[in-house]
Design a binder for these strands. Structure first.
Lengths: 229, 229
DNA sequence: GTCTATAGTCGGATAGAC
DNA sequence: GTCTATCCGACTATAGAC
């Protein structure tokens, strides 16, 4: 039971064909990518018939779009609300530089948990990472639901850490640089696992990666605070 | 050593069919990925015949493998030698913590140039980044030619910065975390370009990204030097 | 709504002329 | 070595029984 799979749409049961296909799509599209995933594979994984894909989604592309929507619906409910709270506190002038730095660390902690931590979230993250590298027509859905609000907030927090009133383009780029730390560990998973001699990220490795990223982030933010005139 | 037996010797001319196909492969595989690239597309881009792919390379997969070899041959000649020099100086005890930190910055500068800077290198980097995310049978070729030596050296340099004799697993993970900064800007290129409102990374943006990464790296390394007991 | 059967398309590889 | 023509398999989508 994933806490939010039904989200805002009409999918009360987990066992109907439509939901089964979306679940299968999360796995199969995530593992092989859109082009390499076949409708036969999707139907088999879902335990449904091949013809159900055109029937419910109009085709493979429609299924993929719904998989992406499923992910962004989840994010809208579980990830965005805390960001919105932060945004309001920042706008209200309630955050000083130290509090803004703490808020950024909190964002990164959440992102680490989402992208390389919790197993069910990793399935989401795999598809998001693929869209980063290979933007499809669904790119916009993810961009507007996730990256746009998260990067906007992070850039504003960075400006606050530096003691500036409004974010500059450098803040925007650096906002991404902070997130990129996490995405890097997701994308290069295979290289890291091979290099360090693991079989995958266990909870111990996830914890160690989190500590490294947070420690690096603290060092980076401390450097920025020193920038203030 | 692993000197390519045919590659380095048999490609004096840029206009023979074999070389044209490898050049086309760099572009087409890089843009669409292995699965989505078609042999017809490859042949058309190369200005050669479709049948030339099975003839010269045994098939699409063989062409891809040769494209990857072409990349790693380049890296072996242009990227690895300076790393080997660093490695020897470190092994000879010629580097103190500050010099090790400087060497790491130098490695990152080179990687930035290679991955997001120079246009012809970007074509290589695109395929390397894809193999990170979607390891194929060619993963090993890249891993052994690039990641293994680069990460080993970076981990050893990090240990030196910390004042430790030998690298720990944390050094290995952090070595990747430093490289991940660069890879992140490559992978999420589309998101960043959209967010910041660019049309692509110009030389100005590349320079700004380099400064951000180097500044962050200095902050991180300064924090590590403080770790020393 | 779910299934089987099949149509129609496209991909990679091959045969054989030149 | 290079080309055209073609095969064969895999794919997505559809038609139509139930």
């Amino acid at each position: 039971m994933l806490g939010g799979e039904t989200v805002a749409t009409m999918t009360p049961s987990l066992s109907d064909t439509r939901s089964l296909l979306i679940e299968a799509g999360l796995d199969v599209f995530g593992e092989f990518g859109y082009a390499a995933a076949s409708t036969r594979q999707l139907a088999e994984r879902a335990g449904t018939n091949l013809a159900a894909i055109p029937y419910y989604f109009g085709g493979k592309e429609g299924l993929y779009r719904e998989v992406v929507r499923h992910i962004t619906d989840h994010l809208r409910h579980r990830v965005l609300p805390p960001l919105e709270t932060m945004r309001q506190r920042l706008a209200a002038g309630e955050l000083d530089a130290a509090a803004a730095a703490a808020a950024l660390e909190q964002m990164l902690t959440g992102m680490i948990e989402f992208i390389i931590g919790a197993p069910q979230a990793r399935r989401f993250a795999r598809i998001i990472a693929r869209e980063q590298m290979d933007p499809s027509a669904a790119f916009d859905i993810i961009f507007e639901a996730v990256w746009q609000p998260a990067l906007t907030l992070a850039a504003a927090l960075l400006a606050r850490v530096r003691g500036a009133a409004a974010p500059t383009r450098t803040d925007s780029l650096q906002a991404y640089a902070l997130f990129g730390q996490v995405l890097g560990f997701r994308v290069a998973r295979e290289t890291i696992v091979r290099f360090v001699g693991l079989e995958g990220y266990s909870t111990a490795e996830t914890a160690e990666i989190r500590e490294i990223i947070l420690q690096q982030t603290r060092a980076i933010l401390a450097g920025l605070q020193g920038e203030r005139p």
